Amino acid sequence: MDDTVALTATFNDPAGTTAQQDAIRNQLISLVNRTPAGAEINGSVYLFTDGGVSSALVAAKQRGVKVKLIVDGDAVPDVDANGKATGSEYSTLAAATGLGTDLTADSWVLACPENRGCIGNRRLGGSSDTGAINHNKFFLFSKAGATDNVVFQTSANLTTSQRRNLFNNAVTIPDAGSGLYAGYRAYWQDLQTNGSSGTGQATYYKTQDAGPYKTYFFPRQEKAGTTYNNDASTDTIVSLLDNVDCAGGATQIRIGMYAFTRVQVADKLVALKNAGCRVELLHNGEDGNLGTAVQASIAGNLTYAARCAGTAVDSTNASRAIGIHSKYMLIEGTYLGGTNRKLVFTGSHNYTYPNLRANDETLLKIDNAAVYDAFKANFETIKYGPHCAAW
């Protein structure tokens, strides 16, 4: 039987069937279950309350897979500040019957230090700044099925709300000689090294080309003489948008975004729309997820903008909020002088200042028409569905 892993884009539907809601976590579990003894799984995730994934990882260890997982410090507590159970799987994973915490062993779970990421240690200031986080959401497989060196990158945390309440995306990428796996693996090693000793770093920014892919790892510091929130020249998303050519009116930009507060990105999108590009935005509707300066910049100035804050009713007639947690930008048209390009930028990176300047984050560029077409179809499905309203 052919058990090769294919290049795949996966999307959940939080308002759909259980299988549709669980599509991303089920893809991850499938990869874990297909990892043979002697192979290695390396993961880095922000929050982890999914017992199904936890059980699959422990079962993988028991059959001889080396399972090494990094989580944010926010994933550790069993109860929150109000005494409410968090549902965290950390205690299960950290137990001797799980993965354990001995970093010299073949399998373990490591929590980043409290109030910072594993690498990122910067505080941007303000009463709401609780410190940097490891906001990553990726898994690496030295072998899955018959395929060596597989990267799984998602926008979703491993929680129930991410499956049941929010649209998310994932990509499964066989390395296929591109060098992508090695780039992620080196970054993962830096997360482990910094997370297990030392005080972290205020800036880390590294990029790597890998065939049709490119990775961008954060945090990225602003230039001297500027502040974290006013230097567009070191905003990676602005720099990517600087590569877009709107001449002729054929270039299209589509963004599905959970949190968007960087006004420099908003201003650049407006400028591109004014230059002839078609620019569309789907953003999450929770209060504060769209910054006031961003809202003022884009109001009436993009081709299309919609707030995603719908509701769904389950079989018990209970209603729940439905929004978008994806973090992707799609560019179709002229980019870096090349015409008819189809590019996807996805990962854990929201368009906020902490995601740029403080957190451990990954942004992944994918230059593949089939993957682009899948993301575009997802965008259109959400856009024309009942959970987003144009404004």
Results as ranks from 00 to 15, higher is better:
Y304F: 11
A305T: 13
C277W: 12
V270S: 04
I253H: 11
T261V: 06
T316S: 05
Y304C: 03
G310Y: 12
A299P: 03
T303Y: 04
V270I: 09
L241S: 04
A259V: 08
H325M: 07
D314P: 01
A266H: 10
V263Q: 14
V313T: 14
A296R: 06
D245R: 10
G249S: 12
S239R: 14
G285Y: 04
A309E: 10
E280P: 06
V270A: 06
R254P: 00
T234Y: 01
L241H: 10
G249C: 08
N301I: 11
Q264F: 02
I237F: 13
S297D: 11
I253V: 11
V265H: 01
D235T: 07
A271W: 10
I255E: 11
G323D: 15
A259M: 09
N243Y: 04
A296V: 00
L302V: 12
G276I: 09
C308R: 09
C277P: 11
R262K: 12
T292G: 10
N274Q: 14
L269A: 10
L269H: 02
D242L: 02
A312H: 02
C277G: 07
G256K: 00
A299K: 12
L269D: 13
A247D: 14
N289A: 03
V313L: 03
L269P: 05
A266F: 05
H283P: 00
A293E: 14
L281S: 11
C246Q: 08
T311F: 04
A293N: 09
L269R: 02
G288E: 15
T292L: 06
C308H: 08
D245Q: 13
E286K: 13
H283S: 08
D242H: 08
D267K: 09
Y304A: 02
K273H: 07
V265Y: 03
L282T: 12
G323I: 00
R262Q: 15
G288A: 09
D314W: 01
A306G: 07
N243F: 07
A247T: 15
L272F: 14
A266R: 01
D242M: 01
H283E: 05
L302C: 13
R307F: 01
I324G: 01
T311C: 03
L282F: 03
T292P: 08
T251C: 03
A305I: 05
A318F: 01
G300R: 06
L269I: 08
G276R: 12
D242I: 02
G249I: 13
V270F: 03
F260H: 03
F260P: 05
I298A: 07
K268Q: 12
G276N: 14
A293D: 15
D245H: 06
L281G: 08
A247Y: 01
I253F: 13
A259E: 15
K268H: 06
A259G: 08
V238F: 11
D235I: 08
A266P: 08
V265Q: 05
G288V: 09
L272G: 11
V265S: 08
V313S: 06
G276Y: 15
V294K: 01
G248V: 11
I324K: 04
A259F: 09
C308L: 10
D245P: 07
T261W: 06
S297G: 06
A306E: 10
R278S: 15
T316F: 00
A275M: 07
